[in-house]
């Protein structure tokens, strides 16, 4: 049976409509490469492996979607009831065709499964020799980063050198969190009682944005962090600076602030080199040097610090840091001290 001219025209129209639609969608998808947390612009070896697979999956998915949509549209147009149209044919099935379209999804599945297995094997095993060991711990609602070899503890801002593998052990002290920096690696959950591991080798310097990806309670939305990938020299300098004790307070204002910090704040925060040795909250020894505070939520400047100190829960609902009811003078003193902790 030869298809009629009408059927051919309507098929062509359907294909063109679907192709135009697919092209528009692809442009929008591809446009997300510049976004801060894009999954389309990998910057580490493992992220690139995932991305190559991702591209293959996208192309196959796109072809299947376009084909099914075009067929649906074409059949809807061609076989619409028309005066004088042919009576509906009473076919019950066609075993050959049915076997064929059983095989299509099988083949597509195999095409995806084989490279997927390869990437799983390549990215989930042991980290390469000489990887920098880091322990990342999820807290409600901030990230703690520990470099055991250097004896260094910091929060919400991870520094790593370009071109060297890092292996991150993922822990949680309370509920399940998830460690995700889309441009550097796929996410892995931080499950209390399970120490998961994740490794990758960053291949380009820059600042990468990450965010907790497992719902973890009231302020799940406010649990962000950054990874700074820097040159080996910058990294070594950073580690050296971070392992020093806190700088002593300079000036009357900051000294008064130190007094508050080592009393009121000391129950929860550590400031190495002072009597403050709490471990519930982030380590503040070098807090002045971080770009953002409150787990990547606001700029680390005088204004931001003052706002945070005056009422943490206003900025981060449910915050475990209580409102200490500081007066504006105390806040000013604390801000001066914290900014000095470079």
């Amino acid at each position: 049976m030869r298809p009629s001219a009408r059927a051919l025209t309507l098929s062509a129209v359907s294909v063109i409509v679907v192709l135009i639609l697919s092209a528009i969608l692809w442009v929008i998808f591809a446009g997300s490469v510049d976004h801060l947390q894009t999954t389309f612009n990998p910057k580490s070896d493992n992220a690139i492996k995932i991305h190559n697979l991702y591209k293959l999956v996208w192309i196959l998915a796109g072809i299947v979607m376009a084909a099914v949509l075009a067929i649906t549209l074409a059949f809807s147009l061609i076989f619409r009831e028309r005066p004088g149209g042919k009576a509906a044919s009473h076919i019950h099935g066609n075993p050959k065709l049915e076997v064929m379209w059983t095989l299509i999804p099988v083949i597509i599945g195999i095409l995806i499964v084989i490279p997927s297995f390869q990437v799983i094997a390549d990215t989930t095993g042991d980290a390469p020799e000489g990887a920098i060991e880091i322990v990342a711990t999820g807290h409600q609602w901030w990230f703690e980063f520990e470099y055991p070899a250097a004896g260094l503890v910091t929060a919400n801002e991870l520094h790593i050198p370009v071109g060297r593998p890092v292996e991150i052990e993922l822990r949680s002290v309370d509920v399940i969190h998830s460690f995700w920096v889309p441009q550097l690696a796929g996410k892995v959950d931080m499950v209390p009682g399970h120490n998961n591991r994740l490794w990758f080798t960053p291949n380009e310097r820059g600042e990468y944005y990450g965010q907790c990806a497992e719902f973890c309670g009231t302020s799940h939305a406010n649990m962000r962090f950054r990874v700074v990938v820097e040159s080996e020299a910058d990294y070594i300098a950073w580690v050296a600076a971070q392992t020093l004790d806190a700088q002593p307070a300079v000036g009357e204002l900051a000294q008064a602030g130190e007094g508050i910090a080592t009393t009121l704040c000391a129950a929860c925060h550590t400031i190495q080199g002072t009597s403050a040795a709490g471990t519930f909250g982030p380590n503040l020894t070098h807090v002045g040097g971080r770009g953002l505070i409150a787990s990547g939520m606001i700029d680390n400047d005088a204004e931001g610090l003052a706002e945070w100190l005056s009422d943490p829960a206003a900025m981060k609902p449910g915050s475990k840091m209580p409102n200490l009811n500081l007066n504006s003078e105390q806040i000013e003193q604390l801000v001066a001290y914290l900014q000095g902790l470079q």
Partner: peptide, 29 residues
């Protein structure tokens, strides 16, 4: 007919994150 078209889109994106490495970038987003 809309069911066929829309369910297909949902089914295909389901096959995408059936691949665990891809899923690590899509899970919980």
């Amino acid at each position: 007919v809309a069911f066929i078209a829309l369910f297909t889109i949902g089914g295909i994106s389901g096959v995408m994150h059936a691949s665990p490495p891809v899923d690590t970038q899509q899970q919980d987003t």
